[in-house]
Amino acid sequence: MAGPKIATLRDFGNPNGSMRRWQIDWSTRERLVPFFFLAPSFLALALVSLYPMAHAFFISFHADGVGAVGRFVGFEQYQRILSSDYFPRVLRISVLWTVGNVIFVWAVGLATALMLDRNFPGRPLVRAMFILPWAMPYVAAGLIWGWMFDYEFGVLNYLIQNAGLSASKLNFLLACPDALTSLTAVSVWKLFPLGTVMFLAGLQTIPVDHYEAARVDGAGPIQCFWYVTLPGLRNVTIMLTLLITIWTFGRAFTIIFLLTEGGPAGCTETIVIRSYLEAFKFFHLGTASAIGVIVLLIALAFSVAYLAYAYRKEVGNA
């Protein structure tokens, strides 16, 4: 005697079965799998990044208010910021800071990469030493540099005076534009290992026979560098420039905040520092959010350029 029929997976495929609508064919399933893998990361990002961004965007269209979002003011916050006395100044400082970082990270990174690309005893150890600044936490680095720059007791002024390089003490952080120069130096010190690593990787992709051919044609070291090395590092240079631009413009905060907080007389106050001050010192959440959106839009332009370049390169390689 036959017992009750037990449903099997096969039955779900039955055109008359109630589970038919849940069936997903193999190719659709294959297309959906990546989205399932991406979902946890997307959810996490949405929660900690996209939602705050969207909320900041929302607040930027409202008046400044403590304790509650102010009244809707449309683009008034943006108009006020763009026509304010401080905006051209903080934008100019942000651009100077970014350009300084890009140029010097590129130059120092390339110089150290060229040096470390050669064979010499203890090369792995020296390479590791050059990575150390990159590994050091920003806050620790900022505090140490703060003491090194100290006017009264700093080691830099002590060494400079003892070496007879200057009769008077240098105002590393006490004068304009010296303070911005000093801060840029610290930031470059912190970031150049990234350039070094990227250029080292780039140097190893340049075929040796290109150098040999250049030498056969009578090229010296400078011509080799100019006509072989630099063109060979073109892709790395573009990638590094875009990356450093995005990072230094959008994150021009930690080192500056630790060492000068935007002073003296506002000459190291970047747009990001201003956004922080508006939010947490002046209680202007609407203004701070609008500045944040402006920073986001500027950084986004560079990010789009970076992604477009990366995509084009990938398509080119394929």
Binding site: L174, C176, G263, P264, A265, G266, C267
Partner: peptide, 14 residues
């Protein structure tokens, strides 16, 4: 405080 200190810093350091 920010307006005052920025001006005083200009006096002291610039």
């Amino acid at each position: 405080a920010k307006i005052v200190v920025e001006h005083v810093e200009g006096m002291l350091y610039s």
